[in-house]
């Protein structure tokens, strides 16, 4: 379990990194950030890149900008930081989800950009990005900077629209409206394991404590996060306590492609419980935040 021979490049700036990625376009290149997913794959020789580009020196990717409408999180921000203030208050669903990634030692090394670029279908952060409608910032020497909606970024298991010479540099996340309730539920054999199934929900308030927007995303049940928000639309205009969350969850899970094996079927059962609970948590928090529902 030792990695095979590989050329290690350690650029000192984003600009230099993009040059490296452009110049190595003919080679098999992997960018390594915190290494929490990639190192085991290298050690098992399941990943055998020619060139490993270590972005550990690119401190310019460790940034957090909080604007009135949106938050920008640099690619090298560690999972641990996602669970802390100010993000904990700004994006509570992100903080809660990040707390389910591995354990402290893993969260201290792993980075948001690494997790998103890795695109494990059972990982938490891609699902959060889809839920929040985030935009993924990708940069290359050839094409400059482009912003890709999260829903389009993840294309399959460990697959994204990131080009060979592109570096994921940041994510831009719209701040949820005041009073938005969220729910995050994942089931895994042990805390910190990849999910067997998970669900995330947000319910945003409008006039009269009625739901103005509702979102639901499932993960670890398909080859990428699945946005099933259309099945929650029936809740829009209603008060949370009037909604039949069990039926909504049922409809959302029923919309998934038929299970291909018993593993997938069991994941669907878990996803159903996760979706139901995530919606209920969101409803509880929605109510708690408003504090005067029913008026």
């Amino acid at each position: 379990m030792k990695p095979g021979p590989v050329t290690l490049r350690r650029p000192a700036s984003v600009e230099e990194c993009l040059d490296v990625l452009r110049s190595e376009r003919e080679a098999v290149v992997k960018v390594i950030s915190g290494g929490q997913s990639l190192m085991p794959l290298l050690a098992l020789r399941m990943a055998n890149p020619d060139v490993l580009v270590d972005i550990g020196r690119l401190d310019e990717l460790i940034h957090l900008e909080v604007g009135p409408e949106a938050v920008t999180i640099g690619a090298r921000v560690r999972h641990h930081q996602l669970t802390e203030e100010p993000l904990r208050s700004l994006l509570p669903v992100l903080a809660e989800a990040a707390g389910h990634i591995g354990h402290t030692a893993i969260r201290n090394r792993g980075t948001i950009g690494g997790s998103l670029a890795h695109a494990d279908p059972a990982a938490e952060l891609p699902a959060v990005m889809v839920l929040l409608g985030a935009e993924i910032e990708c940069r290359s020497a050839s094409a400059g900077t482009r912003l890709v909606p999260a829903a389009e970024f993840f294309t399959g298991p460990y697959l994204t629209t990131l080009a060979d010479d592109e570096l994921l540099t940041a994510v831009h996340v719209r701040r949820p409206g005041s009073g938005t309730g969220h729910g995050f539920v994942e089931f895994s054999p042990r805390h910190g394991d990849y999910a067997r199934a998970g669900a995330l929900a947000t319910l945003s308030p409008g006039p009269g404590s009625r739901i103005a927007a509702a979102r639901l995303v499932l993960f670890a049940v398909a080859n990428r996060p699945v946005d099933v928000s259309e099945h929650v639309e029936v809740a829009v205009g209603a008060r949370p306590e009037e909604c039949d969350w069990a039926s909504i969850a049922q409809a959302a899970v029923a919309s998934l492609p038929a299970p291909i094996d018993t593993d997938r079927a069991n994941r669907y059962r878990l996803a159903l419980a996760a979706a139901r609970r995530a919606l209920r948590h969101a409803a509880d928090r929605f109510a708690a935040t408003r504090g005067h529902h029913g008026q």
Binding site: P40, P189, R190, H191, G192, D193
Partner: peptide
């Protein structure tokens, strides 16, 4: 063949 597949209890279990 890895500890992601062979699961042993952790302190929280």
């Amino acid at each position: 063949a890895t500890l992601a597949d062979y699961l042993v209890p952790e302190t929280s279990d």
